[in-house]
Nucleic acid binder design. Sequence first.
DNA 1: CCTGACGTCTAGAACGTTCTAGAAGGACAG
DNA 2: CTGTCCTTCTAGAACGTTCTAGACGTCAGG
Lengths: 341, 341
Amino acid sequence: MSPSPTAASGKRPTLADVAARAGVSTALVSTVMRDTKGASAATRERILQAAKEIGYRPDARARLLRSHRSRLLGVQFGLQHPFHTDLVECLYAAAEPAGYQIALSAVAPSRSEQQAVESLLADRCEALILLGPQAPAARLAELAGQLPVVSVARRLRPPCGQVAVVRTADDEGARQAVDHLVGLGHRDIAHIDGGRAPGAADRRRGYRTAMTGHGLAEHVRVLPGGLTEDEGAAAARALLAARPRPTAVLAFNDRCATGVLDTLLRSGVQVPAEISVIGFDDSRLARLAHIDLTTVGQDIPGLAEFAVGRAVARLEGEPDPEGETVIAPRLVVRGTTTAAG
Amino acid sequence: MSPSPTAASGKRPTLADVAARAGVSTALVSTVMRDTKGASAATRERILQAAKEIGYRPDARARLLRSHRSRLLGVQFGLQHPFHTDLVECLYAAAEPAGYQIALSAVAPSRSEQQAVESLLADRCEALILLGPQAPAARLAELAGQLPVVSVARRLRPPCGQVAVVRTADDEGARQAVDHLVGLGHRDIAHIDGGRAPGAADRRRGYRTAMTGHGLAEHVRVLPGGLTEDEGAAAARALLAARPRPTAVLAFNDRCATGVLDTLLRSGVQVPAEISVIGFDDSRLARLAHIDLTTVGQDIPGLAEFAVGRAVARLEGEPDPEGETVIAPRLVVRGTTTAAG
DNA sequence: CCTGACGTCTAGAACGTTCTAGAAGGACAG
DNA sequence: CTGTCCTTCTAGAACGTTCTAGACGTCAGG
């Protein structure tokens, strides 16, 4: 009949249990547990000892209920995106020194953004950090009316209400890639784009302007791609059929670039000897020794830090710049680019 | 000075606010919010209306504090493992119909299993579902003394205390892979193992027994590998140096197999014409068209369902088999295996 | 010896919910 | 009319914490 027959000790120990065992009030135990001043060294010792003996563990929920601040940042992320999981990792690291905790809520085919956000709100998060949110701008603005909202890696056309945006300068990244390739002597540089994905439009524009700036307007070639390996592979097949065949290609992201690499390898085309390939993101994928992809690095720790920083700034009433925080990308040269043959 | 200058309404509305607006008691609002019987249709309507008007949202933490049951399953997973993120997705799907919620806690280089579990416990989860935990068995047994614990994809030597184990029959999976290759005429079949990773020992053993069963004991060759692409790539280089060179290889998992594939391609070795490659997991990776990996499929939805099922069974005092639940794997034949040349 | 300040500690009220009693009112059988 | 049983509702005590006020020493300065 017991609801939890496997639980050894029956009930979870509380402050009161510790207090009783140490012969003090619950309030005093509380101050000791919070490591606040107001208890003598001797009793502090005694209380800690008692707590340890009965295996006391503070109840985060009760704690948050009482204190007005929950110090909880809600993070919505896509379970399947390596870029997101990398970001989450850095968010944990960025939140801790600021004295905040992270509550995760995943988006997946079976779990909508709506559901993910609902659960974060019910959990009393003080602010939301949304990774590449797809929700309509109006919905984001509405949320931002209730609590601080930070959109990471998704640009929003101003006015985006109170929504803070933290993103990479995608156009600048594309420019760096083109500059690098031109510096290596390439002229025939194609771009496999990301369609409607976040950032795709900016990267496309950056590519076009950079090419034009180098006087290569007539070599501009944008192939429809996407953000997955498959889409990259498909685009690469189109690339191989093109005449004259480009000597270099800038892919929308690393996953897309991986698909390109694979197709080229299978077709017996040498990379980088015959075609140079550049990705975007500098995700784990690109760094793998056997892929060793030259890529436009997004500053993932930086994005995470700014995202947390802006959420915290708003929560603590510090001055926070309205609108966008744009972080510069940095080209990471690895093994998939070389001088034009 | 306000701690949250961006929050529009200042304070989050509570039951009392709704009650005041609808002219009823908080208790009645509570019953209506929980959709419990005990309120007339008319007032129910009125209360819902009032709640909507002021944007009331129940506070999950206060709710859990009061009710003894939290109906929360804590899930510990590795942010960087596609196999884990796939599992998490299925766990969400499995928990919902059972009336439970999922609390996520990630493990990453900067966040230990210890930390992950601590935070789940502090959050008052009723049970823990640990994906491929690396913690010492003694630690898991200790945890299981406090609350139901399910270890997924990690085998534990009995007695594992109260820890429930849900896993794939790894040895059987390796056997299926070997059988498939032998059926294709391969005799020189190598195995790149996973070292101390969960499941590695069983796969190794399954490989050995299957080889022996086919009278190929002297062709047994186990190369030290690991669970990442890099480790697979390194092992593949060793493989290429071996004489006689194996005609087929079973990798520890899909990531490892991907590294193998890449190294082979780069060395100009045709897959599957010269060497057949088999992975393990059937993660998203294997299904990508340009990888198209033959692999031993783990039944991810099945694992998730059993994991939730066993956690719930223990929580609700239903009879739960002690020890292991073992799920059969199923070989998925794709493009990286073919008849021995 | 008083006074005020400080260090240590405690009682009791929050926090936002759910739960346990039980009250109010009506319907209906005796 | 009385009693019993519904249905609908409410008061008030939990839950495990933190916070506010203040009590009780002790100690230094006058």
